[in-house]
Design a protein around this nucleic acid. Sequence first.
RNA 1: GGUCCGGUAGCUCAGCUGGAUAGAGCAACAGCCUUCUAAGCUGUGGGUCUCGGGUUCGAAUCCCGACCGGAUCACCA
Length: 607
Amino acid sequence: MNSLEQQISTLAKAAVKALYGVEADDGQIQLQKTRPEFEGNITLVVFPFVKMARKAPAQVAAEIGEWLMANGEELIAKYNAVQGFLNLSISDAFWIDQLKAIDADEHYGHFEQPSEKALPFRKGEGVGSPLMMVEYSSPNTNKPLHLGHVRNNLLGYSIAQIQEANGWKVVKTNIVNDRGIHICKSMLAWLKFGNGETPESSGKKGDHLIGDYYVRFDKEYKAQIAELMAAGKDEETAKREAPLMLEAQEMLRKWEANDPEVRALWARMNEWVYAGFDETYRRMGVSFDKIYYESNTYLEGKSEVEKGLASGVFYRREDGSVWADLTQDGLDEKLLLRSDGTSVYMTQDIGTAKLRFQDYPIDKMVYVVGNEQEYHFKVLSILLDRLGFPFGKELVHFSYGMVELPNGKMKSREGTVVDADDLMDKMVEDAREISKDKVNTLQGITAEEADEIARKVGLGALKYFILKVDPRKNMLFNPAESIDFNGNTGPFIQYTYARIRSVLRKAESLQPSAVSSQLDPKELNLIQRLCEYPSIVRTAGDDFSPAVICNYAYALACDFNSFYHDLSILNESDTQKKALRLLLSANVAKVLCSAMALLGIEMPERM
RNA sequence: GGUCCGGUAGCUCAGCUGGAUAGAGCAACAGCCUUCUAAGCUGUGGGUCUCGGGUUCGAAUCCCGACCGGAUCACCA
């Protein structure tokens, strides 16, 4: 609730008290933005008072309207009552004050402290902002990043920005799954079929090179299975006994036993992958404050499980495997250590949590991981809590939906993936193509500037396309249809910004003190929109939803374009009106830029 | 089968803490550039908000029940 809503709310309560002698509670004060087809800015829904007034809704609305006009201290300029809706027109002076306040606030829309709703269990104990750790990306090191990872990375990065704006100290982290059978598969295929190929020798990006051998492994493995089945084995047996699989498993055992050769190869190939990932991350514009590797955390997890075993949180079965009993919580029993003593995913996550908590005073832990792992995180939350991690019980699994292709899910091994690097290339290329038609507006720019614009716009289109969808929902990506640059898109918002910047470049300095005191409806509408921004940031933070920011930025850009179309800024002869429009435009640009920054989208000065 | 999530225009999606005649974009059609960037603006057509009950002044929104789609319930990650 912003200050206007607060003021109206207080006045409305007083009106109800004075007119009908009843104390209205907060839940009965329902305010909404007035629909465009009616006159007014803010609307009070009076249905809740109809019973206590024992009058027709329209009459109640009119009575409250009259009272507010008489007692509203010039805040309310006009009112009209339509059925049970009381539409209030707020005075121009109020809006102009709001605009000046927004202009004066360098960090408009950013908060010092998290909202009440988001406050953690350690409330008040620490000094300064509470700390939120956001884990995202978390790739396997056997293949390059694809569109699914892109959604994860963009959501994770954006959520981190949004929470920072909401007053959290945020640590972005990445847990790299750098060990396991999948990496061994790539390693083995490379040894057998690679002929010593390196990123340098082939010119391939390291992660792509490794990914190629992962696919190669699968191909050869399937051939062996087919061979065994042709020789009379059933499928299960063939899968289990295929020589390549046995070799890969042997390699994993050697890795766990610290075999120097296997470890050296593993380290070398992982380095190739990291170099490739770094490039993709840099291009995507995401970053991390701290990176953990599972090869370093899984042993920590084992010892945590041992401790839990000693303290009776877990139990050991006859075959030596270790389990947690979650039946009290309505869940199953969960394996933590296999009978051969090796760790599972859950074990590693416990170990990672331990190290993280040693490294940072975490108040809130957020895992950005797909919705197929909801059960896993439900269990992890309970286990961390039982093991005594303060953030365990309230950990947030920021669960998002899959990215689907027209023919279904993406599968790395089957090659039905949209590669992250290719996709970014394509987007930037498309942006460059489109801007070629705009030579008249972009004349005189250097090749570097043109590259920068294409990069920002192409990536902006991609990021907005992904982030505007409610994270919880599955989303569809059709590679055959290119992502739009018109309509409800990133470039639309960037274009709006570039237009404003162009106007501001041509204008003299801003003079907030010399603005007009009269507002055109389009101007008022824009100011009102700007006023919504802080509460939008709060909602996006509380709900973990970059989509909320997207919707807002789009609405703001729409409002501005309508204003821009109807009213002249630089050619306005009334200097006070001109000053107001410049001030307004500058602040729309500021808020658009701020909102897009929360999405990780950069704004071009011209396009 | 149990649990969780989703179903809104031809397509992609908003709206969901109950409020006025359910909104955008794309696609289709018709207009607007001698004037601050036309990646823009304006208009037209397009809906059984999956279905059936219930709650109430009022339901796309809340509750119950179907149906459809997805995820998950591994000594996988």
